[in-house]
Design a protein around this nucleic acid. Structure first.
Lengths: 247, 247
DNA sequence: CCTTCAGATTTTGTATACAATTTTTCCATG
DNA sequence: CATGGAAAAATTGTATACAAAATCTGAAGG
């Protein structure tokens, strides 16, 4: 793997794991020292991170760590839900290929098995996250709309999935969410297969918005005031579970 | 302005104006020779163009010009319509600030004056494009959702607006589109002000999808077959008007 | 004590040399 | 004539030196 790839990957995970202070200045030299490479790959990596909104760059003034607030995660999820909803609607209109239908049904089966006995082990959480991801990912890319796929991918680098964190701290919430998640997945697929675009879009959007319910759950659990949306996201989530399920 | 900015801007407009063959290889040296700079700013510009999907990069193998097909423009507009629709819905829910309402009403007045006598002059087309842009732009940024704003901006670098081209070639279409556009703008604002999120979203989405009708108009005008979506966009649009109104 | 501003320092922007990799050329071989 | 593959050329990846710009420092002046 090229140095630039390495730098990009490492910096991204450091940023997502909150290893820098929000708004902290990121000088090229500093990063060079940490990762022991020259400025060239660092500059390239920073440009890509800027395109993904993880760092903020100003000409002649370098970069700063983008401070991710709860509001940013909320907003990204709102957009993601809208886009995934429209993906479901589009699929209902254009129909599913046999291959996509197989993948989706496979994903439903996997998810179904998981829903039968919810654990709070790392293994389970990873499996759940993966099965869930497959479903969403398959559905979106099946539309064949590259702009749509890319738009959603861009959002995915912001922690759009906070369920892992909330699950780990609240068994009842986890069980309830996995069960209803399964039902919703089935509902979306049914709507798509029946060709009801409006229903498919609405069901999928509502389902994707479940991440917002997760945010609200964390808010309630921490008994936060009305301006919690302006909190740093790492601080918000930090008080609850173990770590952010990113990337 | 920095060299990198210059290179980025020039390359972008060259790409959007179809001055390179689709899929053509873009070597760094070639660009350096054309723009008379060293490789450093060129590499930076290429990274940013890649993030915007205008060039395609492969590690150790440089970049190629992304061939923009009609389908890509269509797809980008589908996504844009969905996002702008959701922006209108969000505004209906959260209400308009006085400032936003003023800007929107100002935009409606400007658009109204334009609609009263449609010309096919460059001046008119530019004014129309600008008034229209203001309306859409204001509406989206008023939501305060940065992810939403950025997602739409990313799409904007693909030629999402083809009206200028179609207008110039068909007066009846232009008059009809400007008139109905005005009515639609009013309808969206009314729905937002009345707090009807569903109506606002639907009206705005339908309105934004007018760009798709423009594509269909070009298709019909050129009497193209069913696989016109796979055509290079520059070729598709080239046979009709003057130039693509990009950036 | 605070403000101002010139000089020193740091940091980013650019060019370029060299290394690593890919692509092309072209000759030997079947 | 087609094919394989090694040598040559071209191209990208990386490091680094220097230029340009921003930031910091500290002393002078109010």
């Amino acid at each position: 793997m090229s140095q630039e790839q390495t730098v990009y990957t490492k910096l991204r995970s450091m940023l997502l794991n909150g290893e820098f202070e929000p708004e902290q200045r990121l000088t090229e030299k500093h990063i060079c020292d940490i990762l022991e490479v020259s400025r060239t790959p660092v500059r390239a990596a920073l440009l890509r991170l800027e395109a993904q909104n993880l760092v903020v760059g100003q000409s002649n003034r370098g970069y700063t760590v983008r401070g991710i607030r709860v509001r940013d995660v909320w907003d990204a999820n709102v957009v993601r839900a809208v886009l995934e909803g429209s993906a479901a609607g589009a699929l209902a209109r254009q129909g599913l290929s046999d291959e996509t239908r197989d993948t989706l049904e496979q994903s439903l089966r996997e998810y179904g098995e998981l829903a039968e006995n919810v654990e709070l082990t790392d293994r389970f959480l990873t499996l759940h996250s993966s099965a869930n991801w497959t479903f969403h990912e398959t559905l979106v890319s099946a539309t064949g709309n590259e702009s749509l796929t890319r738009s959603i991918e861009t959002l995915a680098y912001m922690p759009v999935q906070i369920n892992r964190t909330v699950f780990a701290s609240d068994r009842a919430y986890a069980v309830q969410t996995v069960r209803s998640g399964l039902a919703e997945h089935h509902g979306v697929v049914a709507a798509i297969l029946s060709g009801d675009a409006t229903a498919a879009e609405m069901l999928m959007r509502t389902h994707s918005q479940k991440a917002l319910r997760g945010i609200e759950a964390v808010r309630d659990r921490q008994k936060l005031g009305p301006d919690y949306l302006d909190m740093p996201f790492t601080q918000f989530i930090g008080g609850v579970g173990t770590s952010v399920a990113a990337a």
